[in-house]
Design a protein around this nucleic acid. Structure first.
Lengths: 344, 344
DNA sequence: CTGAAAGCGCTTACAG
DNA sequence: CTGAAAGCGCTTACAG
């Protein structure tokens, strides 16, 4: 006997075991278990019961090899250990688990990795039935190519014509934040963006653009020195804030494009003895779990829900493979709203 | 032609393509690429080059089916979207990526899932070469059985004789916290534990026990009402704190077994107009990224390092399968230390 | 509605 | 040191 089976020694139940026990052929077991047509209802039931009794689960590797599904969804995230990233992945996992689908996790941290990942020599391609890309840049052309090659993808945070997507209603949200600050009488407003992190990281761009647009429309100054980058970290947020406050003519209000950066900014302002919002008003983005504690005025987004929705879209894409339909991409825009607390 | 290959359409390079291109048999390619003995150095080099040129990667499913490795490590965590959980997973991912090993992620949230997971009908068993269990309870007996069945496991946060492990030097740390508070003159000390979360979640137990031991040794009161559970959440920490403060004779110092709970506790104390540490001193555990911002006195642990170490142990366990050695389990104790800031 | 057979891409004895 | 062959556990045409 080969060494095989000796390693992860649990007596593995194969499709043949089920076939014998149910008194049918392996082909019938295969069909019955996957709900394919042309199986007598009574047979289907019997096979199902035997399989359940035997605790049978099809080997994903063998299944895929033979042309079936792997029962796996790949998830690619730029930053795993951020509040947002972790929550989205957790949200995805919870839904996949319900359908008994496994999750293959990839952290794609830079452009080189991103390219290699999408290129196709990447592993997800042969190990999963669908891919969820979290806040990873993808051009319409890239998406089109991948779709043509048969990839099943769900994009989160960016949108292409080819794949289902979930994007934030952040244009509206950022605009709302801008209007709120303008209505409060601010005329010099700074921004802490996240761009430093990487070119391939989408979300801060529309956020920034729409915020800026409102300022422009209101005739306010939007010169470059009013825009700093905080790299989506606490310390980065603090440094960005310092830079803004050190300006000859510092802003009286600041919009930070993530709560984590806002927290850093808030801390720095207070360290300098400034009153927030008295001396500088501050608006964040995310509604982080600690936002209530800091009394942070911020833009709320439904992070948990987003993950769940992405998972459901991915599941739908997998299922479609069975029926061989090319599913019509579905585009979800996740709502956001301004939560006014004490910093603005 | 079957539908196969049509789905994830990228022209997949197989071992046969490499064999033909290199002018050898597939067996030789297989051996050369996996560094098995009995391959002429020149052949090995040639095969390697051709494989690289062709961007060949062995199909993990096929490889495992035939008795080889999957190139995958499974990771099981109780809570994915906690500061600790996310960081550990991120730390693991970073190291695995270096070796081109994929990560299969499972959230194991309750005892039922835990049992099913370890039982062997769980999917990781046939999909990965090793498993990293993060803060999941496992008895010596369970571990022994799994080891006998050939499982390759690394436990993080608990320790068994059978598998390599990483545990925190938390006994010392908790004791240090206790002594620190006692030396500061506190005679009535409360605890906010995390136990509510679940029985299967290890870490808070030794933490609690050793803290308690020092109190006992110092002759202090350790009656049950001084111990509350905060479920590892901000709000839970706040509620636990409220409970302690509402005691007829409230504690003058509190040890929260996670920073997140400590933050909730701190917030609640301040909401009640109490001065920290003037009215109640507070010590946390973790050294969370916001701990400096809150000025939280806490116990620092090397979360990033822990993940990396776990990944390396798992990689070692995988490699050992090749040489068929049963690796001697390695037990790492990760250092911790008290960081004194402003809350105690 | 069901089964026998081929084949997916690998690895491992077995010969040479 | 190398190759031909068997087989891992599945799914899918192809017959019936």
């Amino acid at each position: 006997m080969s060494q095989h089976g000796a390693q992860h020694g649990a007596k593995i139940v194969t499709i043949e075991d089920v076939a014998i026990a149910a008194g049918v052929s392996v082909a019938t077991v295969s069909r019955a278990l996957r709900d394919l047509p042309n199986v007598a209802p009574s047979t289907r039931d019997r096979v199902r019961e035997t399989a359940a009794a035997l605790d049978y689960v099809a080997d994903p590797g063998a299944s895929r090899l033979a042309g079936g599904l792997t029962g796996t969804v790949a998830v690619a995230v730029p930053v795993l250990d951020s509040w947002y990233g972790a929550r989205v992945v957790a949200g995805i996992e919870a839904i996949l688990k319900e359908s008994n689908v496994d999750l293959l996790l990839y952290a794609i941290t830079n452009e080189v990795e991103r390219q290699a990942f999408l290129a196709g020599n990447g592993a997800w391609w042969r190990r999963s039935d669908a891919l969820i890309m979290v806040d990873l840049r993808i051009s319409d052309l890239e998406a089109e190519r991948l779709a043509a090659a048969g990839a099943r993808i769900v994009t989160l945070g960016s949108r292409t014509p080819s794949f289902s997507s979930i994007t934030l209603a952040e244009t509206e949200a950022a605009a709302a934040a801008a209007r709120y600050l303008i209505d409060a009488g601010h005329e010099r407003i700074g921004m802490i963006t996240g761009v430093q992190l990487a070119v391939h990281f989408r979300p801060s761009l529309p956020r920034r653009d729409s915020f800026r647009d409102v300022l422009v429309a209101a005739g306010l100054d939007v010169s470059v020195e009013l825009e700093t980058a905080g790299g989506f970290s606490i310390d980065g947020g603090g440094e960005a804030m310092a830079q803004l406050l050190d300006l000859p003519e510092p802003p009286t209000a600041v919009f930070a494009m993530s709560d984590v950066m806002a927290i850093g900014a808030l801390h720095l302002a207070r360290q300098r003895g400034l009153d927030v919002p008295g001396d500088v008003a501050l608006v964040g983005f995310d509604d982080h779990e600690t936002a209530p504690i800091f009394g942070l005025t911020t833009i709320h987004q439904e992070v948990d829900l987003i993950g769940a929705q992405a998972a459901r879209l991915a599941l739908r894409a997998m299922a479609a493979r069975n029926s061989n339909d090319r599913v019509e991409p579905e585009h979800i825009v996740s709502p956001t709203h301004l939560v006014v607390r004490n910093t603005a």
